[in-house]
Every structure is written in C-alpha cells, then in structure tokens.
C-alpha cells in the first residue's frame, strides 16, 4: 500500500481490476452456458452463483471491519479507521446484493419475495446494523471522536452477529425447519455447478477487494485533504504569533 497515493490506481490494482473483469466473464459463461438448470431448483439455481458468494464475502468484510476497528483503538492510526470504513462500505454493498438476490430467488421458489428465512432475516438485520455504522461515520463533529465511536459501533455490531443469527434461526425453526438456502445449496450442487459456485466466490472476492482498495485510497486521500501533515500544521500554529509570517503575508505597521 502506497503511503501517499496521488491516484487511487497502481499497477497492482490494475492487475486486480483486469483479473476481476476476467473472472466475471468466466462466471457469466459458467453460470449461463456451461451449467444447466438444476434438477430440483431449475433455472433459479443460477442466482446461487451470486447469492452464496456475496453473503460469504460480506461476512469476510464485516470481519475485516471488526479487525480494523480493534486495530484502530489499539494503534489510533487513521490507516485502520479508513480501512475499517472501506471494508464496512463494501460489506454493506455485498449484504445489499445478498438481500436482492435472495428475494429474486425467493419469488419463483416460494412464490413470495420475502419469507422469514433465518439467513435472509439475519442478513436484513445486519444490513441495517451496518447502515447505522456507516451513518455514524458520516456524522459531523470532531473526526477523532467520531473514529473512536465508529470503531466501537463496528466492534459491537460484529459481536452481535452471532446472537442475532442464533435468535433468528431459532425463531424460524419454529415455523419451517432448517435453513432453506443451506439445504438447497448443500444438497443440490455438485460438478459443474460446484465449479461455477467457486468461480463466483473468486470473482466476488476479486471485485470486492478491488473496490475496497480503491475505496481505501479515496478515503486516505480525503483524510489527508481534510487535515494537513502534522508537522506543517504545528509549524503554522507556532507561527501564529509572529506577524511577519501571518497568513496574509503582511507585516502590520
């Protein structure tokens, strides 16, 4: 990671970007041409190649967010604050994709866009929790205070993923037994379909990483634009009482 990026692009991210594009192309080919409709799920199985990878990688980014939040509280370096923000944002986007694809899959499968399936419901709650986290990051005020509070929200949210999941799972088990998505994907997918799923994981991991790196760099540049280098700021502050170097550049008579 460059310390002072002047652009958000670098050779590494260009390679990553090209790899992302290529993997998406391969995924599209696999999802629509190579694999056929599923015996049980029919054509809707193709949604799984997006749905399952996005939710897994969303959790990965939530984990990254929690780790960066903890690191920020330990090190108090804005590197981790910006990194936590970037991973939180990408995570929310992925959770949103998960919800949309889940609903699109639910409509033909269950005849309704929404059923109170444990995973869908947990995902919706996590989505709201992390939207709250992102809102916290945009509030006005002292950036240091905000960063600390956002880090705490990130850690609390991550710590609550399991309790939320547990309670919702238990609730939905009263109504419809085990998780529908888990059963469908585990039992039905094999062979080319399994390959397509793995390509999906790879493609979304690459795309999300590419987005996250750029988001981090934008955040880092914004962070630098908001403040100045500490040494320069200290020098300017010390110069305040010397009229000769006042900001107007004029010596008072």
């Amino acid at each position: 990671m460059a310390d002072h990026p002047e652009t958000t692009s670098s050779t590494a991210t260009r390679v990553l970007g090209i790899a992302s594009l290529a993997s998406i192309v391969v995924l599209v080919i696999y999802a629509f041409a190579v694999t056929g409709p599923d015996v049980r799920l029919g054509e809707t199985v193709r949604i799984m190649y997006v749905h399952v990878p996005t939710v897994s990688i969303a959790y990965l980014f939530m984990l990254a967010n929690a780790v960066c939040s903890v690191m920020f509280l330990v090190k108090r370096s804005s590197f981790f604050d910006v990194a936590a923000g970037a991973s939180g944002e990408i995570g929310v986007v992925l959770l949103g994709l998960t919800l949309v694809t889940g609903m699109l899959w639910g409509r033909p499968t269950w005849g309704a866009y929404w059923v109170w399936d444990a995973r869908l419901t947990t995902t919706a709650l996590l989505f709201l929790m992390y939207v709250g986290y992102l809102t916290m990051r945009t509030l006005p005020g002292n950036p240091n205070v905000r960063a600390v509070r956002a880090a705490v929200v990130g850690i609390v949210s991550a710590a609550l993923i399991y309790p939320v999941h547990m309670s919702v799972e238990w609730w939905s088990s009263l109504h419809q037994g085990r998780t529908v998505f888990g059963r469908a994907t585990k039992a039905a997918i094999a062979g080319d379909q399994e390959t397509a799923l793995y390509i999906g994981f790879l493609a979304f991991l690459l795309v999300a990483s590419w987005l996250a790196v750029h988001r981090f760099r934008v955040g880092w540049l914004a962070d630098r634009a908001a403040g100045v280098e500490i040494d320069a700021a200290v020098a300017a502050r010390r110069a305040e009482h010397e009229p000769a170097v006042s900001s107007l550049g004029q010596v008072k008579p």
Partner: peptide
C-alpha cells in the same frame, strides 16, 4: 508537547 483538537495542533511543541 503537541496536543490536537481534531486535526488542529492547539499546543505546538510547548
């Protein structure tokens, strides 16, 4: 001693 208020160094090496 340097202490910051937000990003602003209120104490500038005192």
């Amino acid at each position: 001693t340097v202490s910051l208020l937000g990003r602003y160094p209120v104490l500038a090496g005192l």
